[in-house]
């Protein structure tokens, strides 16, 4: 049975593609493509009835953002989603520093829903929507 929404835990972190992209420049296509995506467990994608490269909306208590879902190629990680560091991840991850200065970049509860028709915002669009600049 296909579900409409899935509760997951959001992790953010590095990928080699994000690393290459950030060194090429934050305005590059490489950077955009490597940071406006979201790795998902293959089983979880099946549950949502989505395929590789389907757009999804990820929502947390901090906000919500549209990203491209990509099947995690190396093994199972049910219940986890992984977004590479970047403005898209930070639009929704937790700002709680738990009193020690470092925000909680891993382990934010999140909800995923398929939004195949919603576009992914570009960097400029994202900043404008968030900060009005």
């Amino acid at each position: 049975m296909v579900q409409q929404k899935l509760r997951v835990t959001l992790l953010t972190g590095r990928t080699i593609e994000q690393g290459v992209g950030k060194e090429a420049g934050k305005g590059t296509k490489e950077y955009f493509e490597s940071t406006s995506m979201c790795y998902m467990d293959a089983g979880d994608m099946k549950k949502l009835g989505i395929k590789n490269n389907t757009n999804i909306r990820v929502t947390t208590s901090n906000g919500s953002v549209v990203l491209r879902a990509v099947k995690y190629p190396r093994g199972a990680m049910p219940g986890l989603i992984y977004i590479p560091y970047g403005p898209w991840a930070n639009a929704i991850c937790s700002s709680d520093t738990t009193g020690i200065g470092t925000p909680s970049f891993k382990g934010t509860p999140a909800e995923v829903e398929p939004t195949p028709d919603k576009p992914i915002l570009t960097l400029e669009e994202l900043l404008r929507s968030e900060f009005g600049r």
Partner: peptide
């Protein structure tokens, strides 16, 4: 690039 790497509320 804190606008990319800080949580949104901090960037605001």
């Amino acid at each position: 690039d804190p606008a990319s790497n800080f949580p949104r509320k901090a960037v605001e």
